[in-house]
Design a protein around this nucleic acid. Structure first.
Lengths: 352, 352
DNA sequence: CTCGACGTAGCAAGCGCTTTCTACCCGGGA
DNA sequence: TCCCGGGTAGAAAGCGCTTGCTACGTCGAG
């Protein structure tokens, strides 16, 4: 029914071993023989049996990329970058690796499930992107799983995610704290003193770090931080919209709103506009990430640019062993403040 | 070193066969025995060897989702929907399927490569999303590959992609032609007569169908269609921007611009604004897809809403055999015209 | 002319699991 | 009491591939 290695061997009049060696190219095979085999492969339209191969060789060519939300360009961009570097050992056709992205939807269970599935497939490498969940039990479970993966020879790389203690994983962490700090410093420099903050989900490292940066900036200037000016919610447009409505209700005199990311900030803009407030005339708005659409917002969004493509590509190379891991197993990737039209000085007299 | 089925069997004092049966749950095992086995699995932290299992059973739990551009929410949303329906046979923990998304980047070779890789892994199902490439040779290669996959028992579903002749694949096609037609009809109704069209890449079915809809609308009203008013480019923001600059150069009196998708339309908006033109006062703009950010554009974008989530979910269910394929192996999914602020009547006197 | 080294190819033993077929045990009907 | 059938568990034969080791020439050096 299906063509096997043995069929190819028979047609090429060689042993299965020889065919295998031609296909894997890691053993000397005479040119004439190789050619005969290749022709037979072609004639028969032979496709290697992945599971059998993985079983015998005790390795597979699967590389997993875990993302929190595949519909979010933040992850899409990183995933694309990681994947662009995941190529085969080179040489022979079909020597490619299968880079697959797994969508956890931000769910701890799904994250663990995918990791197990990848472990089951004896994946060659795994790249985890985006913020981690801070629940102790879950973090421990993840750490244990990563350790086990590493033991089994799977290379583990974290991209845009803080290091995991005791897990043999390379980490490329974004400086979310520094970015958050720079953003709020910018707002403070402009003269804002009453700044609303729309944070992400409570239990995410990303959320916490960005918020800490914000608070550090306030604290450094001695600007009081009213707890009521911070609202948590998911990293989506709707959350930004609703949180802004709520912030405005609590404190109508806010002169600026910072979103945990660009998507949230866009939702905030929509809410402000609907409330009849102009941006940045009445209220300044800032985001985080600098996703492609942010520059097209009206006004263009002030934000912190994260080098998603560069970081993803680097993570991919490390996962493939084509680039050395940074010293200490981790590196911090800096963001860059992008000042654009959505932030400006507060309306004169609005502050006091 | 690694724990195997045999280790579990030894610890549970049963044969490997019994452990396998407990894990697969498709054979009667006494409750007491089952429990003993499960405990051993837990104690040993056993993880099934996927390749070995796939080899012996001649099936795997991999499901592939091919997308053209993972950084584009159009695909991200569909992929997330497909994946949400890809769950295991239910029951036992770990019975999940591995839904993986593969990013072809719009490249024919990569598309074929991924299909081969999935074939090699003996994937349970494959879902191809988005427009197909119209190159004859490539289309034939894809068709042959899909046929072979189907023969090997892999279920093939096309989502947002036209049917492939002679390939045993279920197709859920978007009515791109109808949507394009409705959009341009809307513009014509408003009184526009000089409409620029920013099309996608030439060789894509999506591009062609949407453009055909546009032209059909023009033809139906006897409105002349100047070839210079159509520009092709990739489905990205930059293309929309540059194409608009070019269109304006060729014909400064255009009163409307239609983008092949929302992203392109947003780029067009940026270009128009920079040219000092107001939307829709001077020029109306329309997109296609109705991605989440489109409603937040300023002004909100008139577009054709495609039920990406619904279509993706349905494709996922069909791929899992949980929903019957539509009659004839294909169904057309309709779009819905969303009229918003970016389109309006042309400036009085602008037409004649 | 002989011997060892080198370059190629084949043999065969698994890799870890699934599954068919067989074996066993037990209870109930004849 | 014996036999038969239903319910469980085990033995063993692969699934299709990789790879260590062996075997066979051939060629150059001694």
């Amino acid at each position: 029914m299906t063509v096997t290695l043995a069929d190819v061997a028979a047609r090429a009049q060689v042993s299965p071993a020889t065919v295998s060696r031609v296909l894997n190219g890691n053993y000397p095979v005479a040119a004439a023989t190789r050619e005969r085999v290749l022709r037979a492969v072609d004639d028969l339209d032979y496709v290697l049996n992945g599971p059998a191969s993985a079983l015998a060789a005790a390795t597979s060519d699967l590389v997993g990329i875990l993302v929190n939300d595949i519909a979010d360009p933040f992850f899409g961009i990183m995933a694309a970058a990681v994947q662009s570097e995941i190529v085969g050992p080179g040489g022979r056709a079909g020597g490619e690796r299968l880079a697959v992205v797994c969508n956890t939807g931000g769910s701890p269970e799904r994250e663990l499930t995918y990791l197990t599935l990848l472990q089951r497939q004896r994946a060659a490498a795994v790249v985890l992107t985006g913020g981690a969940i801070e629940d102790t039990a879950h973090a421990a479970a993840i750490a244990a799983k990563l350790r086990r993966l590493a033991e089994a020879g799977t290379r583990v790389v974290l991209c845009g995610r803080p290091p995991v203690p005791d897990a043999d994983a390379v980490a490329l962490a974004f400086d979310n704290r520094g970015g958050g700090r720079a953003l709020t410093d910018h707002l403070l420099d402009l003269g804002h003193r009453r700044i609303g903050y729309i944070a992400g989900p409570e239990e995410r490292t990303t959320t916490r770090h960005r918020l800490e940066g914000h608070r550090a900036a306030l604290a450094a200037r001695g600007v009081p931080d009213d707890a009521a000016w911070t609202v948590h919610g998911p990293y989506d447009r709707r959350s930004g919209y609703e949180a802004t409505v709520e912030l405005l209700r609590r404190e109508p005199t806010l002169t600026a709103v910072v979103g945990a990311n660009d998507t949230v900030a866009l939702g905030a803009c929509a809410a402000l506009r609907e409330a009849g407030l102009s941006i940045p005339g009445d209220v300044s708005v800032a985001g985080f990430d600098d996703l492609p659409f942010s520059v097209d917002a009206v006004p263009a969004l002030t934000t912190v640019r994260l080098p998603l493509t560069e970081a993803g590509a680097r993570a991919g190379r490390i996962a493939m062993g084509r680039e050395a891991a940074p010293a200490g197993g981790m590196a911090v990737v800096q963001g860059e403040l992008m000042v654009r039209g959505s932030t400006g000085v507060p309306r004169p007299g609005a502050d006091g």
